[in-house]
Every structure is written in structure tokens, then in C-alpha cells.
Write a protein that binds this DNA or RNA. Structure first.
Lengths: 218, 218
DNA sequence: TTAAATATTTAGGCAAGACTAAAAATTTAT
DNA sequence: ATAAATTTTTAGTCTTGCCTAAATATTTAA
């Protein structure tokens, strides 16, 4: 039995380790969970006792395979529900997160499978993130940050890094969506801003934007 | 802010008062919630402090209007999700309850409204229970227990009283569904059993069944 | 290579929601 | 009308998940 709070910590650790088995620090976890380091330590101990993470005092934690499966299961549900909200209930991509944060904890194997089928087995959520399969396999994506694209090259927007509602609405306003073709026109080195073209329309974007957009080279 | 636990107590009180403003006893609440009377007392005090119930020591509780609205809102969500599970995700009517018990606590006004629309504003859940509207109005239903129907009269099955999975599967087995026409053939007074006809097929049912089926006289 | 800064853990507490045991109120029965 | 039975409340504990403050490790810097 994994509690709701434990699920949230596992998810945080998974994301902080970038889906890998990297060591994650107590402070990083506390920050992500908006709690204090002492609370994170408490929870880490509990997760460790349950065999969900490997933990050595002062050294950091990593998910065990059991912990990784639990984290990925929550992420799978989160992303499936996001698809449901956008595709079936007319939510926009900047509104789905907080509702999906609740729905991801609903426990029912059958519910998740039937939802997956009802949505016709989607492979990406509305922000372009991959949906793990029911065996816990997370599809790998070779995505790159827009900032890395060279001048005069084109690429396609395939995801966002931090999907805060404000950022997503900014993208909507400037007609940047998943699948949108972006051409890099020029870069300013002093502030890392960039001029891009979308459908022949030029747009100047700050480094906050270039570092939060994932693209794929065609 | 109403907690998950508080919502469950409010729902229990609503059901025990039969949707009315009747006084409900501490013991009855404890029994329904599968907790001890002392736990129920603790929670009653909290609900009372929050203005969700009226409470006088040793006298029992009743929902305030605020409490009733909170209870009905949870019931609305529960029943909408049950419809979703049956209509969209191919659940059968005996499988939906425990999942809906979780889904009913998801907090999002928009989610509930969009779900209602997506389901085309259903008025009944899969067990025949009415779905309250978004303003907290619970449609009244003049349903009667099958046991009350006179010999040689016909009626239509419109709901179940206690919808335990076992009872629902019993009904499935004997082809009794919502909308099924039932004719009362005879009654045994010593054990309150009854012989009925469904599509000309006779069936003997016990008093456990006749007291758990709601019917409507044509 | 020590001293200072930072990160982490421990110790002790708090609120929610449950429990047991005991006290108090109410109801039922003699 | 009083005793017995039942119901309800109170008092004190437990667990989960959080907190603050203090202690201890580790890392960074002089």
C-alpha cells in the first residue's frame, strides 16, 4: 500500500533523477515538494523501509525498481487523465495539471486500462510528454531545448519543459503549439534572446522561452 | 475547505436522514462509517464548528443547508462518475461503486460540469438513483419497495436499495435490470417470499430481494 | 588545512482522524 | 421510580505527515 503522499514523493524523485537512477538530494526533494528538508528526510526513511528507494544518510536517494514502477504508474495515470480532459472534456492544456494531480491517485487497474482504451492508446499527453505503457516502460524521446538550435535551422515544437499555466498561455497567444514549425533567425548572445519565424511571422523570444521549449530537428 | 473525511461523514449523514432534515444518531453514523462512536463524536464536533451540521449533545445531528449542499455535491459527482464508468468505460453496475467512492472527492467545478455535459446530462445513475443538479436540487422519486406491490399487479423495476455487488450480480443472473417489468404472482406470508413473473418466466424471490428492489407502478 | 557555510539529520511538537477505556446521560424495564 | 441497559461523550493514545530548533556531516573557501 503506497499512500497518496508517498506517491507524490516518488514522482518528485523520479522527475528529479530525470527518469534515471541518479542520486537525488534531500534538499532538492524538499524544494520540489514545497516542504522542509526535515519532512523530506522523514518521508525518505519511510520509503526506504518500504523498499521503494535506496537511501544512505547524507548521500541521497535513488528509486528502486519497485519505486520506479510506482512512480511511472502515477505518471501514466496523470498523463492519461490529461489527455481525457483535453480531448473529451474540452479543457485547454494550461488547465489540466491541477485536476490531473488529483486524478492520478485514483486506484483501479481496470479504470486505467479502460481509460487508455477509451482514449485509443495515446502515446503523448497534451504537453508532448510520453505516456508510459502499463508495464512501466517510459518511451524515450530525443528532444532538445530550442536554445540549442543553430541559426537558419528549422525544427518542430514537441514539448514544454516547465508547463506552468502562464507559460502555456504565452505559447497560445503567440500561436506556438505542439507540431508548430519554428525557424531560428538570429540569437543575441548578451541576453540569450532569439528571433524565430513561425509561418513566416517573426517573433522575438527571451531565454526563458528558448530554455523551456523542447524541439525536434526535422 | 471540506476534507475528504468530512465529505464522507456528510454523505453518510445525508443518507441516514433519507435526504431529509431528520436527526441522526452518533451510533448510526459510526456504524455507517465503520468507525467507533467516539470517532463519530469527534467528527460531529468538527462539522458543527464548521457550520455543516447542527448538533446538540446526546440529541443527534442534522445537516445545515451548507452541509446538505456539500453532501449533495459529493453525491452528484459520485453518480456522474458511475454513469461515466458504465457508459464510456464498459464497467458493469456492480463494479462502479468503489471507484466512484474515490472519484467523488475530486475537486474541480469545471470537471464536474464538463463531465455532466459529456454524458449528456443524465438524470439517473446506473442503479436508478437520481442525479442532483449543480444547484443542489435532488430530484424526488416516488419509488416503492417491491414487497408492497399487491398480487396480480405489475410494476417496473426502477432502482435498488442496497446496491452491494452480490445483490447486483444476483439481479443480472435472473435478468432483472432497470426497466424490467415485474408481475407479482403470489406471496408467502410466513417467510415473506414472493413469486414473480419476468417476461412470462416465473421466479421465486426471498424477502431480502423484495425489500431491496424499488419499483414504480405503471 | 582549518574555518565558515551549507546540507542533512535528529529531537520534540502539532493537527487530523482513528482507537480504547471510562464516565456521564438517556432510555428501557422492572 | 429506580435499577439496568444502552448510548454518547470525555480523556488519553497512536500514526501520518508536517513543522521548528538544534545537532551533526559534508563541502567550500580562506
Amino acid at each position: 500500500m503506497v499512500t497518496l503522499s508517498e506517491e507524490n514523493y516518488l514522482k518528485a524523485i523520479y522527475h528529479l533523477a530525470l527518469g534515471d537512477a541518479q542520486l537525488v538530494s534531500t534538499n532538492a526533494i524538499a524544494k520540489k515538494m514545497h516542504t522542509k528538508a526535515s519532512s523530506a528526510t522523514d518521508m525518505i526513511k519511510k520509503l526506504s523501509e518500504k523498499g521503494l528507494v535506496n537511501y544512505q544518510k547524507y548521500k541521497g536517494v535513488q528509486l528502486t525498481e519497485k519505486g520506479r514502477l510506482a512512480a511511472v504508474s502515477v505518471i501514466r495515470k496523470h498523463r492519461l487523465w490529461e489527455v481525457f480532459l483535453v480531448k473529451k472534456l474540452n479543457f485547454s492544456w494550461d488547465e489540466v495539471h491541477e485536476v490531473a494531480e488529483q486524478l492520478e491517485h485514483i486506484k483501479s487497474e481496470k479504470l486505467t486500462q479502460q481509460l487508455d482504451e477509451f482514449l485509443e492508446f495515446p502515446t503523448k499527453d497534451p504537453h508532448g510528454d510520453p505516456i508510459p505503457d502499463c508495464d512501466g516502460n517510459m518511451p524515450s524521446t530525443q528532444k532538445v531545448i530550442l536554445a540549442k538550435i543553430e541559426i537558419n535551422k528549422s525544427c518542430m515544437c514537441i514539448g514544454v519543459k516547465d508547463s506552468t499555466a502562464e507559460f502555456l498561455r504565452y505559447l497560445d497567444k503567440h500561436h506556438i503549439a505542439l507540431g508548430t514549425k519554428i525557424t531560428v533567425v538570429s540569437k543575441e548572445s548578451f541576453d540569450e534572446s532569439m528571433t524565430i519565424k513561425i509561418n513566416e511571422t517573426p517573433l522575438v523570444i527571451s531565454k526563458e522561452v528558448t530554455h523551456n521549449l523542447f524541439v525536434k530537428i526535422n
